[in-house]
Simulated scan of single mutants.
Amino acid sequence: MPDPTRQFFTATPESVGQARDFALTTLSSWGLSARAEDIRLCVSELASNALAHGTAPGHGFLVKIEADDDFVRLEVHDSRGRRPAVRHPTDTDTSGRGLLIVEALSDGWGVEDRRPFGKIVWSRFKAGGDTMLTRSAAPAFTTSGPGPGLLVSLGAWTWPGTDPVGAGIAHILLAHPPGRTSHDTAEAIEARMRHTAESLGGLAGARESIPDLYGRLRVIGDRVLLRFHSTRYGLWLPAHPTWTELVTGRGKAVLLIGLDPLPQSADAARVDAFLDAALAADRLLFGLARIT
């Protein structure tokens, strides 16, 4: 079994990204990939909580990762004893989902006292198909947006539509495929898609004002790339002439993110039914993605 590893981070905004990178570098060196995306998101949420609520003046936080044949255990240590509680924000709230994401993506989490003071917020993750004793020299991903594993799995659909005044405008839908493992619960899928929305600049519900997402689209020849904040990875979108002409002509497209799963193989009729059901249940997020 690999030796536990830990790193201390100062209380600066950059430390959350540094903690993510530390976790991914550790998992890569141990040859663990099956839960890397879920662990990366949980590191981000727990480190953000420690930075915002857990660090006393002059103190930082510590991240510890250990693994055995069954689980990867993630710990975030901070200097305040106040214990966090799961909140249940509404769809219009812009914060408060951190522990809900951890609860959805991990296989257990909790809080322990830390000696001589402070607390430890931990979460653990079943190993999946990885072998804990395998080591790999593969380079780690260093990204704070969606990881490549999630991007590859997403379904993307594009079509020409109209805006509220009847003018033509391109549309894009992103959705997560149905769960393939026991880790892909409905809650985990929703958490991943909400994180994807945040990585695009923050999308809104159907009854809210649709936000502008500047610089999210880049047209390269006859192809269109969807870009995410603070990541070197992007998603090539399905393109066809009429749709691409609308993107380039208007410089924007309506972007929809589904919070429920949809198979990548879904045809137009199934996508239409998915959109109708998701809109009725308020399970779609909207944004106006603009060209760089």
Rank of each mutant, 00 (worst) to 15 (best):
M193N: 03
I101S: 07
R194G: 03
A52G: 10
D78W: 08
I220A: 15
S230K: 13
F286L: 12
E14G: 12
F228E: 00
V224N: 03
E66F: 09
A239I: 10
S144V: 09
L226I: 07
T134K: 05
M1L: 15
A289K: 05
S48F: 01
F228R: 01
I120Q: 09
H195Y: 06
L99H: 06
A138S: 00
T158Q: 10
G129L: 15
A19I: 00
R83T: 13
V121N: 00
P4M: 09
D78K: 04
V111W: 03
T244S: 14
P116V: 12
F61Y: 15
R207A: 13
R290M: 10
T142R: 11
V224H: 05
S29V: 02
T162I: 14
R216D: 05
R250H: 13
R283A: 13
W122V: 06
V219N: 06
R6C: 08
D282V: 08
E14F: 11
R40D: 04
P241F: 08
L237I: 09
G31T: 00
G108H: 11
S79P: 05
L259G: 06
L173C: 11
A197S: 14
G149R: 04
Y214R: 13
P178E: 12
A137H: 00
G118H: 02
L41P: 02
G149I: 07
A239Y: 03
Q264W: 03
T248Q: 11
R135N: 04
S136V: 00
R124P: 03
A281H: 05
G251P: 03
A85W: 09
E37N: 00
A34C: 10
H195G: 04
I257A: 02
M193G: 01
P13I: 06
R216K: 15
V76H: 04
A85K: 15
W159L: 09
R80M: 11
L255C: 07
A52F: 13
D78Y: 13
L105W: 06
A268Q: 15
D107H: 10
L256K: 07
P178M: 10
V86T: 09
S209F: 12
S29K: 00
T143H: 01
F141S: 04
D130S: 00
L62V: 15
L203V: 12
V102K: 01
S144D: 07
I291H: 07
T196A: 13
V247P: 01
A50G: 06
S144R: 14
A50I: 07
E45Y: 06
P146N: 09
G251N: 12
G129I: 11
P57T: 11
R124S: 06
